[in-house]
Simulated scan of single mutants.
Amino acid sequence: MTAKQILIAEDDSFLRTLLLTQCQSLGMKTHAVANGEHLVSEALSYQYDIILTDIQMPVCDGIAATRILRRLGYDRPIIAMSADEVHETGFDQILAKPIDMRQLAQLLQQTPAQDSVALQLDDELIALFYTNLQQLSSEFARALQLAQRDTLRQICHKVKGGAASFGEADLAKLADKLQHELLSDTPLDELQQSCQYFAQLLQQFGGSNART
Rank of each mutant, 00 (worst) to 15 (best):
L121C: 09
K177S: 05
Y46H: 10
V59G: 07
E168A: 07
F140I: 01
Q24Y: 00
I155R: 10
Q193K: 12
Y46D: 13
S116E: 14
C60Q: 15
I99K: 00
L146T: 03
M57I: 08
L133I: 05
E85I: 14
G27V: 10
G207T: 12
A96G: 02
E139K: 10
M28V: 04
M57C: 01
K177D: 14
D123V: 04
L178Q: 03
V40F: 02
H180Q: 15
S194E: 14
L39S: 02
T2P: 15
T66S: 12
R16S: 12
Q5T: 09
E42P: 00
H38E: 14
V159P: 02
R142M: 09
L188C: 03
R211M: 11
E168P: 05
Q24P: 00
L191S: 00
G207R: 14
H31N: 13
D170Q: 10
V159N: 09
F198T: 04
G73T: 04
D12E: 14
T89Y: 15
I68S: 13
C195Y: 05
S165L: 06
V40W: 02
K173R: 13
K29N: 04
L7V: 00
L182D: 00
E190C: 08
K158H: 09
K160M: 06
A43I: 07
E42Y: 04
A9D: 07
A141H: 09
C23M: 09
L107S: 01
Q93E: 11
H87A: 07
L119N: 12
C156T: 06
A163G: 00
S41W: 12
S82H: 08
Q103Y: 02
I99V: 05
G167P: 06
Y46C: 01
D170P: 07
R102K: 12
T89A: 12
A113R: 11
T2I: 14
Q135G: 06
R149W: 09
Q120P: 06
T89S: 15
G62S: 02
R76H: 02
D123I: 07
E37G: 15
D12T: 13
L202C: 00
L202T: 00
A172W: 11
Q120K: 11
M101S: 03
G90H: 11
Q114F: 03
T111G: 08
Q47H: 13
L202N: 04
Y197T: 10
P187G: 01
D100Y: 10
A43H: 07
A3D: 01
Q135T: 11
E139I: 04
K97S: 03
L44T: 00
A43V: 01
I55K: 09
D49Q: 06
P187C: 04
I94K: 13
A127L: 08
R149C: 04
A164C: 08
L107W: 03
T30E: 08
F91Y: 13
I55R: 08
Q145L: 12
L136A: 04
L183A: 05
L178E: 04
I79E: 02
A163S: 06
